[in-house]
Amino acid sequence: MILDIYKDSLEYSAKDWKTLIILGVISIFSFLLLPAFLITGYNYRVINTAVHGIINGRDPMPEFDGIIDMFIDGVKIVVVQIVYLLVPVVIFLIFALVASQLIGVASTAIMLIGSLIAFVALVISCLMSQMGICHMAYNDGALSKAFAISEIKEVIDEIGWFECIITYVGLIIITVVLSLVVTTIIGLIFTVFGLSGFALGVDASGIFALGALINILITTFIVGPYLSIFNSRSIGLLYTTQI
Rank of each mutant, 00 (worst) to 15 (best):
V80F: 04
S228A: 15
F190V: 06
L180Q: 15
D73E: 12
Y6H: 13
I2Y: 01
L210H: 08
F162V: 14
P35T: 00
V169M: 02
I185Q: 04
I82A: 06
V123D: 00
C134Q: 11
S27G: 02
I110K: 09
L143N: 07
S27V: 00
D59Q: 15
T219S: 07
A109F: 08
E163V: 14
V169S: 02
F230Q: 13
G24V: 01
V80S: 07
G206T: 11
I159R: 13
F147S: 04
A118S: 12
V177Y: 10
L188Q: 08
D140M: 09
Y6L: 13
G236H: 06
I5P: 09
M131Y: 08
I152V: 13
C126I: 10
V105E: 15
S115T: 14
A137Y: 04
G236F: 04
I39G: 01
A106C: 06
C134F: 05
F37W: 07
G194N: 12
K76Y: 01
G206Q: 03
G41L: 04
R45G: 12
Y168E: 07
I26K: 00
G104H: 09
P88V: 01
L143F: 08
I72C: 01
L213C: 03
S205W: 06
L238Q: 15
T219W: 03
Y6D: 06
V98L: 08
L33T: 00
F190D: 04
G197I: 11
V79E: 03
I28W: 00
I172N: 01
E163W: 06
V202G: 06
I54E: 15
D16F: 07
A118L: 05
H135W: 09
Q81T: 12
E154M: 07
Q242I: 14
R45L: 13
E163P: 09
I229A: 10
V79I: 14
K145F: 05
I222R: 03
D157R: 12
K76L: 01
T219E: 02
T191F: 03
I39T: 11
L213E: 02
F162S: 10
N215V: 05
M70A: 05
S232P: 13
L127R: 04
G24T: 01
K145A: 10
E158N: 15
I5M: 07
G114W: 00
M111A: 14
D69N: 12
L85I: 04
I159E: 12
Q130V: 09
H52C: 11
E163K: 10
V155G: 04
S179N: 14
C126G: 11
Q81S: 08
A36N: 08
G206I: 09
L188Y: 05
R233I: 11
G160T: 11
S30N: 08
I149A: 05
A109Y: 05
R45M: 08
V98W: 01
E63H: 13
L171E: 01
L227Q: 11
V87I: 05
L143G: 06
H52A: 13
L23M: 07
C134G: 12
V46T: 06
V83Q: 02
L34C: 02
P60Q: 14
T49R: 08
S179Q: 12
I67E: 01
F95K: 05
E154N: 13
F119A: 12
M1R: 12
V176D: 04
D59H: 12
Y42T: 11
V80I: 13
I77T: 12
